[in-house]
Design a protein around this nucleic acid. Structure first.
Lengths: 300, 300
DNA sequence: AAAAGCGGTGCGCTTGCTGCACCACACCCG
DNA sequence: CGGGTGTGGTGCAGCAAGCGCACCGCTTTT
């Protein structure tokens, strides 16, 4: 859109960090871009960039403007999706930031089910840790977040919440496999792998393990990737940990998953959320409702 | 701002109802304006106007666009106010739609107190009935509404609420003046004046009077203006009705105000609100907080 | 001291927007 | 029924805004 050109150019300069670099990205001369920036600042009434020897950087006023630009772009996209919606087209794009546990089963199935009814809607799904997911929401880079135990919650508006007890995953013949639920101290006596610190499973395990005296959380292998840890379980007889929404045990007859006793380890809270106060595009809003009913079907 | 020109032109066409009339308002040729509109529709991908023999009218897509334009303009004003705020200027404008009862004492005092600390902030205060106030919020024509008993509440986000029992205002020597509270049936036996149907006081009185059998609500004089009714009380010995926030009895020693018994007439709810989900400009947001504390000081 | 990178500027040139005149059409009213 | 008046739309010529090019002054790097 023509009238958003200034916003686009400003955004490009912010990303590139210098007018000259941005001018190459936008296929325009540095001088022309420079003049557009200067003219905008003049009309706006305030400088938005600090001029540095090696480029430009946003000043506080520019930070506010940047947020306005992002919000307006998202608003405009929502407007177009609303308009195409009332002409019956059912198009749109939904971008989701989620915890890893949602990647293998839950989200693919939910999205496929939704797309079977609305083939015009496209999706972006990115695994993000709790901090990154919240940041993406506030930068309008993602419409929806579905993460375990988000931290700050200032811009995160919870739409639906569901508790998920951590499960210990082991081979079917493991000594603990015949119990319906397992105690943390028993599990930690066996070789185990664990996710890295920034993941919610690890944080919950750490809190719980600190209450134990006889045993420690001492993983053989640490990883940010649950995918990797699942495959590692096939190579060495070690217990791994995962939320049940990330498991589909029928597909893996050689493994069993047993919940950790609730009195040992607090369950993880899976929170579905969006940017506080934001009105989502129609496609995203509708898919959000689908997610809520899918999650509600999971909870007892 | 240059990049908002298209929005301004579109808004002008909407207001004028025809491209030619709008072109005069905007000091541009009709042909140029026509081309701008056509170009915008082409880039936007959808028509936004219905072409009629006597002019143009918005289609549903245009209605959505109009709301986007209004929202964006308000957002941009908020951005500028935030920016000037961080450069320490403390400027801004606050527009308020309110019930009449707030006009004589409450709002003038609150605004004067606020302006004594922030002289750069200007105000618009307009009396509006409940329906009009809600409409102004959703059209971004007012930032804040302070009204009794709003009706639909779909776009009205309540920020603070306070109950106000209706008071009967009479001359000091009136037969009912020695009671601490008065019964509705007693009041209605005396000559009385009442506001017109669209005002909250009247609506509450009607509901209460319908429960009575012996007496009726039969005002000698009806008016939309409480100001008029107050002055009328000086000419004829009649009882009038008003919320206490609109009264300052110390200034009128010849009159007394007595609350109607709560078991006879439900108190009016004075609701302070804004457009649902909207982020107000800094000046408005700050004044809103002042209003909340002023109202809280009133409530027992 | 030279080179490289940065933002800013003067100057022709092209592109795109404007204004004018005019068209086709619908409605109103005598 | 037929002209008058209003509407949105269009072809064309002129003009202003924005562009690319070359260059400047500055700081940092080498």
């Amino acid at each position: 859109m023509r009238h958003l050109k200034d916003y686009d150019f400003i955004d490009a300069v912010i990303r590139a960090g210098s007018i000259r670099k941005a001018s190459e990205d936008m296929n325009i001369t540095a001088s022309a871009l420079n003049r557009r920036i200067n003219r905008f600042e003049e009309e706006f009434g305030y400088e938005i960039f600090e001029r540095l020897p090696r480029g430009v950087r946003l000043n506080p006023a520019g930070e506010l403007l940047l947020h306005h630009i992002r919000a307006h772009r998202s608003d405009f996209a929502r407007l177009k999706s609303q308009v195409s919606d009332l002409s019956g087209v059912r198009r749109g794009h939904v971008s989701i930031a989620c915890s890893q546990a949602l990647l293998p089963y839950f989200l693919p199935r939910a999205i496929a089910r939704y797309r079977s009814e609305h083939p015009g809607v496209t999706f972006t799904v990115n695994p993000r840790d709790r901090v990154a997911a919240e940041r993406e929401l506030s930068e309008f880079a993602s419409d929806i977040a579905l993460v375990f135990e988000p931290l700050t919650m200032v811009d995160f508006e919870v739409v639906f919440a569901i508790a998920q007890p951590i499960h210990a995953v082991m081979r079917a013949g493991h000594p603990l496999a015949d119990q319906t639920e397992v105690r943390l101290r028993d599990v930690l006596r066996y070789p185990h792998v664990a996710p890295s610190e920034k993941l919610a499973v690890r944080a919950l395990l750490e809190v719980a393990a600190r209450r134990l005296t006889s045993v420690d959380l001492s993983p053989l292998v640490e990883s940010e990737s649950f995918d990797f840890m699942r495959h590692y379980g096939a190579c060495e007889d070690a217990i791994s940990f995962q939320f049940p929404i990330g498991l589909d045990m029928e597909q893996q007859p050689a493994l069993v998953a047993r919940p950790l006793a609730a009195r040992d380890v607090a369950p993880g809270n899976l929170l579905l959320g969006q940017l506080r106060g934001r009105t989502l595009p129609v496609a995203s809003a509708r898919f959000l409702r689908e997610l809520i009913s899918a999650l509600r079907a999971l909870s007892p």
